[in-house]
Nucleic acid binder design. Structure first.
Lengths: 99, 99
DNA sequence: CGTGTAAGGAATTCTGACACG
DNA sequence: CGTGTAAGGAATTCTGACACG
C-alpha cells in the first residue's frame, strides 16, 4: 500500500539470520515448509524483505510456543481465506449495486 | 526518527548496484571519495541502507549534471554545517531562557 | 577524474545428505 | 519433526593495480 521499503526483497540470508536470531538452516527449513517465500538472485541466492524478517520473528515465537510448521501454515491459509471471502463479498455488493 | 527500515544497513553491494543502476566500481569509488558510508560485515562485505540507495541515486544525478565528487562532498558539508549552526542556535536560545 | 577490467583470494550461499530424536 | 553439521561447489565480494583520458 504505502511506498515504504518494507516489501522489497533485498536482504541476504546471512543478514536475515542476524536480524531474526534464527540460523540459516532454520530459515531455509521454514521455506521448505512453505512458511516464507524469498526471491532469488540470478545466481540463486535468497533475498528477503523486512516484512519477511518480521514474519520470521513471528514464526520463531510460534515455534517456541510449541506450534508445528504445518499449524502455522494452516493458520496463514485461514487468514488469506478470510481475506478472499471479504473481497468476494465486496465485489458481490458492488455488483448488486450496479443492477 | 521514525521506526522504519530506511536506515538499516542490510543491502549488499550487488543488490545496491541493481537498485541504483550504478556499477559496483562506481559505488566503491564514491565511498573512497567520502560520499557514502556503508557498514561492514565481520567478513568485510559492504552493507547499505535504503537511505544510502537514495543518496546514491542523488549522487548519480549530480554526476550526470557534470558535478565532481569533491563538489558533491562540499555541498554535503555545507548542509551539516547549517544544521550544526541551527542546533547551536537552539541550544543557545534555550540557555538564555534559563537565566 | 571517473570508470572498466582481469587477477587472486576470501567470504557467503547453495544443495543433498547423514545424524539425532 | 526440526535442526546441526561436514562436504563440495558455485556465486558474491574484496583489494590493489593497470588502462584510458
Amino acid at each position: 500500500m504505502s511506498s515504504t521499503y518494507k516489501d522489497k526483497k533485498v536482504i541476504s540470508i546471512g543478514i536475515t539470520s542476524e536480524l531474526t536470531g534464527l540460523s540459516e538452516r532454520q530459515i531455509r527449513y521454514y521455506e521448505e515448509r512453505k512458511l516464507i517465500f524469498p526471491e532469488r538472485s540470478k545466481g540463486g541466492t535468497r533475498k528477503y524483505s523486512f516484512a519477511d524478517v518480521e514474519r520470521l520473528v513471528d514464526i520463531a515465537n510460534k515455534m517456541e510456543d510449541g506450534m508445528q510448521t504445518f499449524e502455522i501454515r494452516k493458520e496463514e491459509m485461514k487468514k488469506s481465506d478470510v481475506r478472499d471471502k471479504m473481497l468476494r463479498g465486496q465485489l458481490n455488493a458492488a455488483f448488486k449495486m450496479r443492477k
